[in-house]
Design a protein around this nucleic acid. Structure first.
Lengths: 252, 252
DNA sequence: CCTTGTGAATGCGTTCACAGCA
DNA sequence: TGCTGTGAACGCATTCACAAGG
């Protein structure tokens, strides 16, 4: 229908499936924890449990990266940390700007998880002149007027939008025009972007609504629940976290 | 079912696929916006564009709910708003507690998107005695000691964890023991929960890492990009938002 | 013997394309 | 005629189960 014809073979990310990419950060986090406890090697079973997935999935995921394990033994923790970091592009430094320094923007600025990986908050930007100059998380807030200059001066390619919904598209357009090609959007709006720009979104209210759906369902299940009661209340931790995150990169 | 055979058919949520459930809030948001502009009906094509998906997917999604459209015309906005709200369980009121009132917890407490749907922040809880009594978003912060009582007094079944990673599991255990059966986890940890409890997680750093992966990939694509340049820089908005959110409910 | 790595099987979600109906 | 609703085709992700290999 003329509209969205993908002229590139698709999101074919050089072989690594999107679902796998979405789990690599999970593995990396688990491996980092092991590394800090000086654990030298780990089996797919153990690592999978720590990451909240099942071991078959983990092994399949790793098989896309290469053969980094040793049969009969497991995976070398340090080596895997390095390989996954490299694959994710975390061996380089990513300057990031956060636009919209309200409660959420401030929370993001203070969030330690960024710096610990390859991310660095290069600048905070807000439209409120009353905020400019004030420091949040030790970083001075700058005014929206200077957005383009800030992006360019810092070589920023990743932007975080934490503005109200009404401002998001406009901010997005300016970020993109200034050279940003990846956007993490916290505003509850659908952003439209040109081809080649990736958008990921996080919407708190959507997550709650999905929980509400399942919660409601549970309420209507009393009948079955009463009748079955299969002896054990499994504390079962295996395969906890498909995380609910799949591709979703939206190549434009 | 004598054996360990999954005693329930699976995550079979009464027919509605998880991927569809995850998109319903998206449709609802778009429909609400149309409703506010007093638009009476909308076609699958228009609504899909507003929600950032393609129209075939939207129609398929709606077909799981029932036949709510009129051929040759489209969907009645108000009617669909009601049907989706009901399906998601938003026609009832969901009291929610937020545990961990740091920057993020405060941002969540202030987030308007909750109240606007069926959610109500019933209580804010933090372990810091210095915070108790202080009001955030007009709601007084209470101490962790009272967690169980708060949950029970308010009939809370949905909890939000916005604590540091180290405290998350412990908080989770107490929430679950007190009767919470759905948890939205912002702490960067894998939570283990008993059967029947749903966990969804939101991890800011993971989202950034996924963006970094694609950003890195783009850098290595100069070659192809130069050669192709397909005439148009499509502003194309269609099918923007698979959102990156899929099932992931983890029934335990 | 133990654990990885992977073809094959299965299941789920998306897309296509058109029949059905206002 | 126009748009919905849906069976069928397709493609991607997960799981299974076992061969390969330390």
């Amino acid at each position: 229908m003329a509209t969205g014809r993908t002229h590139r073979p698709a999101t074919r990310s050089r072989g690594i499936p999107e679902a796998t990419v979405a789990r690599l950060p999970l593995y990396l986090r688990a491996l980092t924890a092991l590394s800090e406890r000086s654990v030298p090697t780990v089996s797919s079973e153990e690592l999978a449990a720590a990451a909240g997935v099942n071991s078959a999935k983990l092994r399949k995921d790793f098989s896309y990266l290469g053969s980094y394990g040793t049969r009969g033994v497991g995976y070398d923790v340090e080596y895997l940390v390095y390989q996954i970091s490299r694959e994710l592009g975390l061996t380089q430094d990513w300057p990031v700007v956060i636009v919209g320094i309200g409660n959420l923007g401030a929370a993001l600025a203070n969030y330690g998880g960024f710096a610990s990986r390859g991310f660095r908050v290069a600048a905070l930007i807000d439209a409120d002149p009353g905020l400019t100059g004030r420091a949040v998380a030790g970083i001075p807030v700058q005014h929206t007027d200077d957005l383009e200059r800030i992006i360019q001066d810092n070589g920023v390619s990743i932007g975080v939008i934490a503005t109200p919904a009404g401002a998001a598209q406009q901010v997005c357009d300016r970020l993109v025009a200034a050279g940003v090609t990846s956007i993490l959007n916290f505003a509850p709006t659908v952003l439209s972007v040109p081809e080649g720009v990736d958008v990921r979104k996080v919407d708190l209210s959507i997550e709650l609504q999905i929980l509400a759906f399942h919660e409601q369902r549970k309420a209507g299940e009393e009948a079955a629940a009463e009748a079955v009661a299969p002896a054990a209340t499994r504390k079962d931790s295996a395969d906890q976290g498909p995380d609910g995150d799949v591709p979703a990169v939206m190549p434009a």
